[in-house]
Design a protein around this nucleic acid. Structure first.
Length: 717
DNA sequence: AGCACGCCGACT
DNA sequence: GTCGGCGTGCTC
């Protein structure tokens, strides 16, 4: 018996119109290497493509003369369970197997990233003899040989490559290239060597339930106020999973600014942790992936893509800050890492623990809840005051101004949150009224004064700041609205002084490094203000923040979306969670034009219980998630008619019992493409997903020929 | 006849 | 996504 000779291969094309699998005959010399999950280079049409083996078989339906052989087998094959996961994702998110597989491949596998090689030297027999018989050697050469004798094979750079090269010529050392891991080895840390803090009663109770489920699987929502010690519960649960000989995945939101969580895992578990973060190069990611695949690392900490960590046996999956929007992938397939985590946990009979201070209604319904109601340091929650901004013409409420002045006088720290970047929202001409718009999108350009440009926040278009109006040549240009840049400027002018710095943190603040520096500076400062977008409310733990201010709480509320309330509640609650100090509770001010909005009221009372109960009632009454599923399909094309036509065709095809189809409705033009959207609301998601998948598959060829791209979003955010 | 273009199917 | 084959219709 020579084993299977046919490989069913999915070619990794991005096109919806190309569907595999395609059969290939496996060469005898490839038979051992080719497994389910193997990545092959295959002839495909008159081109070559990468493909992933979905299945092995003895037979093929294809006529033998048409079968060809793969050219090569790439290293870093995908584990079989991830191949199955990709196929499930393709179905669930109405995408293609090839696109899903591309997301799960080892980082850089497609680009041919390999292990990094390093020149290493070792002592030859002649070299050993030379040391003994006192051959002519320079001091440097003698040192090098002695070290090689003591330590064996050593990286050449440590001994001086030039000296070694001469020794090599004389035959005293041998040099070769060796594949090495890119990340500097971290010291293994014994679990006991890092002192773990004493757990609170509630932490103990939560942990007990999680540990009990480790043998059979289960899903938990760890609902705990900020500072209630959720991370310590995760750490203990991971420890237990490791002790049971299994692995763990810890998902964290995509904020490169919170290395704290990563560091706690590394400090507790040492080199058994693979950390995926945005600071790693592609090669480093690849090496971390290999460490997981080979079992050298058994814990993976990282953002949403870490849910695809190639672990053999997963005992636990943690989703930290489970309400965070970054768990939703914005490319195709538009997967939700929380949903995928649940699926993977089921596959591996693992426990899922989703933690948050502001959980989603979805998780309330789907998971069993564990509560952490007290903070580990006993700190009380801050007083939250709602400031009615109606009828006021100044962007700062008098009480806000007073509070800021008091803060400066007392020498404390404060965070001011404004969810709007830039200097001014939009510019208009005072004489003819023309508004500066993005040439590619139907949105106004935002003024960035510091960078001296107008920018489109949707497509990235930028242009110089105008000195006169394009249509009427007037030089009178009005700047409307204020963003974080202007706010920082004005607060610095009004309050800033050497002992009271005003800093800004938003997506504009040049690069991750600069942001990390800003955070470090604010963390270390005795007093001062941190001004920024929602970024400032996420994940960072600064001690001693006495005042938190939300300048425009309605900004998220005005968003035309059924999750607007949830987002607003979360934003205020997260900021409140960051406010307060050991001695005093701190204070949070919420400026709003809608002081009676439910989300704002509940947040002011720290009542996530009440908010969730109320929100669930509302969702049920309106038949919104989690009581129904939404599927959004966007058709985009340079030709408005084509986009509209495909959308209409789609909406006619997806009508299934139990589903309501809304639209097609036009969306604003984006990146030079007109867009038309339909939304399907269904009580039973499976049927609706299947209907959409079929309709999209049928229309895929026609759409691509008309230059229409289809984007399906199951459970949109 | 020669060719540009659009449509359509194939890709193992 | 990309290619080639094929039909149509225009031009030399």
């Amino acid at each position: 018996m020579e084993g299977p000779v046919i490989a069913r291969v999915e070619p990794l094309t991005q096109s919806r119109a190309v569907r595999g699998p395609f059969d290939y005959r496996i060469r005898p010399d490839h038979r051992e290497a080719v497994q389910v999950g193997s990545v092959l280079r295959v002839p495909f049409g008159r081109r070559r493509a990468l493909g992933v083996v979905l299945e092995l078989s003895e037979h093929s339906e294809v006529e033998p003369e048409r079968l060809v052989e793969p050219e090569s087998v790439l290293p870093s094959a995908l584990p079989a369970d991830l191949v199955a996961l990709a196929q499930w994702m393709a179905d669930r998110y109405c995408s293609t197997t090839a696109r899903a597989l591309s997301l799960l491949l080892a980082p850089g596998a497609a680009a041919g990233v390999k292990g990094r090689e390093m020149l290493v030297a070792s002592l030859s027999d002649e070299g050993l003899a030379a040391l003994a018989d006192g051959a002519t050697l320079t001091d440097r050469q003698r040192d090098a040989l002695h070290r090689l004798e003591r330590e064996g094979e050593t990286p050449a750079v440590q001994l001086g490559t030039d000296a070694l090269r001469r020794l090599e010529k004389r035959g005293l050392v041998t040099m070769r290239r060796r594949v090495v891991g890119r990340r500097s080895a971290r010291p293994p840390v014994a679990a006991a060597s890092v002192s773990a803090p004493q757990l609170t009663t509630q932490q103990v109770r939560a942990l007990e339930q999680i540990l009990e489920a480790l043998s059979c699987g289960g899903g938990f929502l760890l609902h705990g106020v900020t500072g209630s010690g959720k991370t310590e519960v995760y750490l203990r649960a991971v420890e237990a999973a490791l002790a049971a000989g299994r692995g763990a995945i810890v998902l964290v939101p995509e904020i490169a600014l919170t290395p704290q969580t990563l560091q706690r895992f590394e400090a507790r578990f040492g080199d058994i942790v693979a950390v995926m973060h945005s600071g790693l190069s592609q090669g480093e990611r690849h090496d971390e992936w290999l460490r997981l695949r080979s079992g050298r690392a058994r814990v993976c900490v990282g953002p949403r893509s870490a849910v695809f960590a190639p672990l053999e046996d997963i005992g636990l999956i943690v989703v930290d800050e489970e309400h965070d929007a970054s768990y939703k992938h914005e490319g195709d397939p538009r997967y939700d890492a929380r949903t995928v985590a649940l699926r993977r946990a089921q596959d591996h009979r693992a426990v899922l623990v989703a933690g948050s201070a502001t959980p989603r209604p979805e998780s309330m319904l789907a998971l069993s809840r564990l509560r952490l109601q007290t903070r580990v340091d006993g700190r009380p929650l801050p007083r939250v005051e709602i400031l009615d901004l109606r009828g006021l013409h100044h962007p700062l409420h008098p009480q806000t101004r007073m509070a800021l002045a008091d803060l400066r006088r007392a020498g404390g720290k404060g965070i001011v949150l404004l969810n709007r970047r830039g200097w001014s929202n939009f510019l208009s001409c005072r004489s003819c009224g023309a508004v500066w718009m993005c040439p590619h999108c139907e949105v106004a350009l935002v003024l960035h004064r510091g960078r001296q440009l107008l920018a489109c926040h949707h497509c990235g278009h930028r242009e110089p700041v105008p000195s006169r109006c394009r249509s009427c040549s007037s030089v009178a240009i009005a700047r409307h609205g204020a963003g974080t840049e202007r706010l920082e400027h004005e607060l610095a002018a009004a309050l800033g002084e050497p002992g009271f710095p005003v800093m800004r943190l938003d997506a504009d603040a040049h690069g991750e490094r600069a942001r990390a520096r800003t955070l470090a500076a604010f963390g270390a400062a005795e007093a001062g203000l941190l001004v920024g977008t929602q970024m400032v409310a996420k994940g960072h733990d600064f001690p001693d923040v006495a005042l938190g201010v939300v300048l425009d709480a309605d900004q998220t509320l005005r968003f035309p979306d059924f999750r607007a309330e949830e987002r607003t509640f979360a934003l205020i609650t997260q900021l409140a969670g960051r406010t307060g100090r050991a001695g005093s509770a701190g204070r949070v001010l919420v400026q709003t034009l809608a002081p009676d909005a439910r989300s704002i009221r509940f947040a002011a009372h720290h009542d996530s219980e009440g908010f969730l109960a109320d929100e669930l009632v509302r969702r049920q009454a309106l038949a919104y998630p989690p009581y129904a599923s939404l599927i959004r399909v966007v058709c985009a094309a340079e030709d408005a008619g084509h986009a509209q036509a495909i959308a209409s065709d789609l909406s006619a095809r997806v009508a299934v019992p139990g589903a309501t189809v809304l639209g097609p409705a036009p969306l604003f033009r984006l990146r030079n493409r007109f867009r038309s959207q339909i939304v399907i609301k269904a009580t039973g998601p499976e049927q609706a997903i299947e209907a959409v998948r079929e309709a999209v598959d049928q229309l895929a060829v026609q759409a691509s020929r008309q230059g229409v791209s289809l984007s399906v979003d199951v459970d949109p955010q």
